[in-house]
Computed example of a mutant assay.
Amino acid sequence: MSLPNHLIIVCGHGIWKGGPKNGWDEAEWLIESYKQGETPTFIEHIKAGVRALSEDKRALLVFSGGSTRPETRLSEAQSYHNLAIANSYFGFLSSGDEAESRILAEERALDSYYNIVFSLIEFWRFTGHRTWPEHVTIVSHGFKRARLVDAHCCGAIGFPPDRVAFIGINPPGMEEVTNEGRGTGNMKADAMRGVQLAIGQWAKDPHGVGEELTGKRRARNCWKVDQGMFRDYEEQSLSGVDVQVLPDGTEALLDDGSRPWNKA
């Protein structure tokens, strides 16, 4: 069987605790108060990722998101995977389907930059350290396209723009966002302010190495999950990826360093 060449990333936004409604009751979720009413959208993200996997026999689906709540060690990523299983993969996969083996949970990412970086590394590990993806598809909120695709994936992380696709599904009350990331209608005022603030923060600090963005990650890392990119120096050397070590011991890509996925 051919190695995967297509990485599908579904970014986590909450934690499904489990329950008889299989995620369709918001009481089964751990979410911030401003995300109330959005859990059906999270399910649509999961569904879109599974659908994309079912359509490509060389795709690898990665649910990405760390353990961000003190109430449970369960990660966003594993809870998304659990929900997909509980809903029988929404009819896109059958039990025992070969594609089930091409679904991973990336359980360390604490922000959108690391959703992509850690997922790239998980893809590389899955292939036995042999190859990086030729194509990436990112699934998230439509209004986050500018940050995820332009600022992170094609900007700081350096994945070729012509090999990146984006599936944007917005929560209720949000208007669709154009490919340039500008709103086409009324949006929730607080969410829009947050979007603009985040874009500004990442524009000033593309790899999230400053105190403002590292501080946000520390606040989310209630279970003290390791934030190093690689398991050890040997694996990092094998990867060909240049990293910088931050004062708190976490790691980020080195600006202008080697990006082996450009050669995939």
Rank of each mutant, 00 (worst) to 15 (best):
Y89A: 08
Y89S: 08
Y89C: 07
F90N: 00
G91Y: 03
F92R: 06
L93N: 01
D97F: 00
E98L: 11
A99P: 01
A99T: 00
E100D: 05
I103D: 09
I103E: 09
E106L: 09
E107R: 13
R108Y: 08
R108P: 04
N115G: 06
V117C: 06
E122W: 09
E122R: 15
W124S: 04
R125A: 03
R125M: 03
R125K: 10
F126Y: 12
F126L: 05
G128D: 06
P133V: 04
H135T: 13
H135C: 09
I138T: 02
V139Y: 06
S140N: 11
R145G: 13
R147E: 13
R147P: 14
L148T: 11
H152K: 01
C153H: 03
C154F: 06
C154G: 04
I157T: 02
G158S: 05
D162C: 03
D162G: 09
I167Y: 01
I169V: 10
N170D: 15
P171G: 05
P171Y: 02
T178P: 05
T184C: 13
G185Q: 08
G185F: 05
M187S: 14
M192I: 10
M192S: 11
W202S: 00
D205Q: 01
P206C: 06
G208Y: 06
V209G: 12
E212L: 15
E212F: 12
G215W: 07
K216D: 05
R217S: 13
A219Q: 09
K224G: 13
V225W: 08
V225F: 02
V225Q: 10
D226M: 10
D226H: 07
D226N: 14
Q227F: 07
Q227L: 09
M229E: 08
F230P: 03
R231V: 15
